[in-house]
């Protein structure tokens, strides 16, 4: 992928809290090309959302990017002045949030919130901006967009609000969209609609999409590539179909084994023993070690990212390579 839209190299975002340093994102690398969808999967607190916010330059104190590079078309976004970053946010990289009930300002009308997005980046008169907003609403499948423009967020259902948020993200035809669990708060039927809509838009506009989620089954049918995060690190990365069919990392294997639809009926679901570690002051070594059946003394040093098969990266000393098909 030489024509990468975004290339993240050894990104480290740490939170300096009173209780200690939380390494929310620790040495994370991935890249994403145009027209591609990358799934970023992990449990709560695994650092997937913080990765997204790091790219947007929206990590709030006490959090800080302490290392690594975020190359957007070759330009490093880490350490970019706020004024420069602001020009990229919303115009070239857009973001969609998890809870559509919370992402729109309750006291501002939809047209206000859309027009301000256009006018933040382009010198456009009010009427033109309004027309573009209306077209954007139509594009994401909102009926009678002209009337809906004058409505307030509370007059929309959850699914419709998420469509509005997507329409706002699409206003400037960004090259990259970071979607932070955008369907988690929605009904399954609405979820399917939004997934379909997003897939279509990515293909039409040839943009990159990072889909952050904890729901492996959503990503499996959507993404091209998959990154599995655990305790701030990407433990496995590769094409989505291959990972789902044949996971290399023990954590990924456990994760996939616990998806109900992939198990035969009547059989108890496999579980990953133990709990996700508290992210404060993690000991060195593989963070999955205490829960891993294959762990041994070697795992007390941090495993490096290795390409175990072509295009298949994992951080593990004891990968599941033997049961290859």
């Amino acid at each position: 992928m030489s024509n990468a839209v975004l290339k993240v190299e050894n990104l480290q975002t740490h939170f300096f809290t009173k209780a200690g340093v939380v390494k929310s994102v620790d040495d994370v690398s991935f890249e994403i090309g145009r027209g591609k969808i990358m799934g970023l999967v992990g449990e709560s607190g695994s650092g997937k959302s913080v990765s997204g916010f790091s790219i947007m330059g929206l990590v709030d104190p006490p959090g800080r990017i302490v290392g690594g590079r975020i190359l957007f078309h070759g330009q490093d976004l880490v350490g970019l002045p706020e004024a420069e970053m602001r020009k990229i946010r919303g115009r070239r990289i857009a973001m969609i949030f998890q809870d559509p009930m919370m992402t729109l300002n309750p006291v501002l009308r939809i047209d206000t919130q859309m027009i301000e997005t256009i006018q933040a980046h382009e010198k456009v008169d009010h009427e033109t901006a309004r027309q573009r907003s209306r077209d954007a609403l139509g594009q994401v499948g909102i009926p009678s967009p002209e009337e809906r423009l004058s409505a307030y967020p509370h007059q929309f259902s959850g699914g419709m609000r998420q469509r509005v948020a997507i329409a706002i993200a699409l206003l400037h035809k960004p090259e990259l969209i970071i979607a932070d669990e955008p369907t988690t708060a929605l009904d399954v039927t609405i979820q399917a609609q939004i997934l379909y809509e997003m897939q279509k838009l990515v293909a039409e506009q040839n943009m990159g999409l990072i889909w952050v989620t904890h729901d492996l089954s959503v990503v499996a049918g959507l993404a091209d590539e998959l990154c599995v995060m655990y305790a701030g690190r990407i433990v496995e990365r590769g094409p989505v179909g291959q990972i789902v069919d044949d996971p290399i990392h023990p954590y990924t294997k456990g994760l996939i084994g616990s998806v109900p639809s992939r198990n035969p009926r009547g059989q108890p679901l496999t579980q990953i023993p133990g709990m996700a570690p508290t992210p404060i002051d993690l000991p060195p070594g593989c963070p999955f070690r205490p829960r891993c059946a294959r762990a041994d003394a070697a795992c007390e040093t941090t495993p490096p990212v290795e390409e175990h098969r072509p295009g298949r990266f994992a951080r593990c000393f004891h990968p599941h390579l033997e049961d290859a098909a």
Partner: peptide
């Protein structure tokens, strides 16, 4: 979230504070 979303839209700090927060 809506303040973070407003910032993610690329709005200026002034607009975020005096419109989105203040209202």
């Amino acid at each position: 979230d809506y303040v973070k979303f407003a910032r993610a839209k690329g709005l200026s700090t002034g607009r975020v504070i005096f419109v989105h927060v203040f209202k």
